[in-house]
Design a protein around this nucleic acid. Structure first.
Lengths: 202, 202
DNA sequence: GTCTATAAAGCGATAGAC
DNA sequence: GTCTATCGCTTTATAGAC
């Protein structure tokens, strides 16, 4: 990955915004702080994002969405079996969260919640983020032979429980909620297996 | 329930703060807006809450915690069977969320996320809220004969999935995530039944 | 307990030189 | 594209009369 100082100004602004909003949320993150930490001037921020803070937040949510999608892709590659993949996924999620000092939770959720009913563009970008993550889960399940409708519903619950468990882990500063979530998702997936293949143990 | 104009000033301030922070979050909710909507003066706000906005937020989170605990108690009373109770719970949650114009999500989560790593008192009040809700789920499961350790872990996942599904429902303005969550929680609970009783069908 | 006035600082956004 | 200066407004918090 490129280090920050090799990136273009626009990219530096987006990444800095994404990180700050992940940790502090939308309202607590000021354009002044963004421009300072991104080593850009306020003029540059408005040059690249004439729509101001709102437009910048949409871009930051999209950046966070792509980042977490990449995380899911890597985590899912660790295990062929979807149930085993959930355990691997929650374990890595918990490790990363703890190593960030419990600061880096979901890169989208805080901003999404602050925007519901008040900033439709941001809310829509968040909805697209969640949908893109569900698509990755659906594909993982489809490759393991799960029926399309079963996979679609499981994808909702996988992402929603990951969200809830990460939030809970962050607030309680404990890996336990994510560890439990991994095992419960594995049970839930296994209990929906029809003609789906069960690699190692089945 | 008492209507707002019958309440004391302190109680009016707390309730108004809780509602505003539920909808807008901590940072976007100003003391001026609170005092106006609560029909109190800024002087009164600081009279009852010398610690200012932070102290007020802690009280608002506790108020929201008690409110949602009461919701869970009522929802769980509708069905003896815990699995069936989850379906009832998510259905009512979805209905209330929709009827609020998708505005009233979890009364604690937005403020909790905005406070992690920045306002420990608020974060702790949020953690206590989640724990109190888990306790209600544990009791429900214990009464149905679930072993203590199984009930403890299921309680985590029940609350975390309710959180994630409500967030998702709010952002996508759809009841679907909550409806799916209800059915999946029922499956998960049933798959953990040992010597636990199964009222109707078992 | 309630009310008004105000301090001190920060905010998003804009203008215009370079 | 970058930079500085500034406008107009809002914020949390405090002081002090009643």
């Amino acid at each position: 990955m490129k280090t920050q100082h090799e990136l273009g100004t626009r990219e530096r602004i987006v990444r800095t915004t994404a990180q700050l909003m992940q940790r502090q949320g939308y309202e607590a993150t000021g354009l002044k702080q963004i421009s300072q930490e991104a080593r850009a001037t306020l003029g540059s921020v408005y040059h690249f994002f004439p729509g101001g803070k709102r437009e910048l937040a949409v871009e930051a949510v999209r950046h966070g969405a792509a980042e977490f999608a990449e995380f899911l892709r890597v985590a899912f590659e660790q295990e062929d079996d979807p149930a085993a993949a959930m355990i691997a996924c929650t374990r890595t999620l918990a490790k990363d969260l703890r190593e960030s000092g419990w600061l880096d939770g979901c890169p989208v959720t805080t901003t999404a919640l602050e925007s519901t009913g008040r900033a439709p563009e941001i809310q829509q970008a968040a909805e697209e983020a969640y949908e893109s993550w569900r698509a990755l889960v659906r594909e993982k399940l489809a490759r393991a032979g799960f029926a399309e409708d079963v996979a679609r519903e499981l994808a909702h619950t996988v992402i929603n429980l990951l969200e809830g468990a990460e939030l809970s882990a962050q607030v309680s500063q404990s890996e336990t909620p994510l560890e439990i979530a991994g095992r419960h998702l594995a049970v839930l997936i296994d209990s929906h297996r029809g003609g789906a293949t069960r690699p190692a143990s089945g």
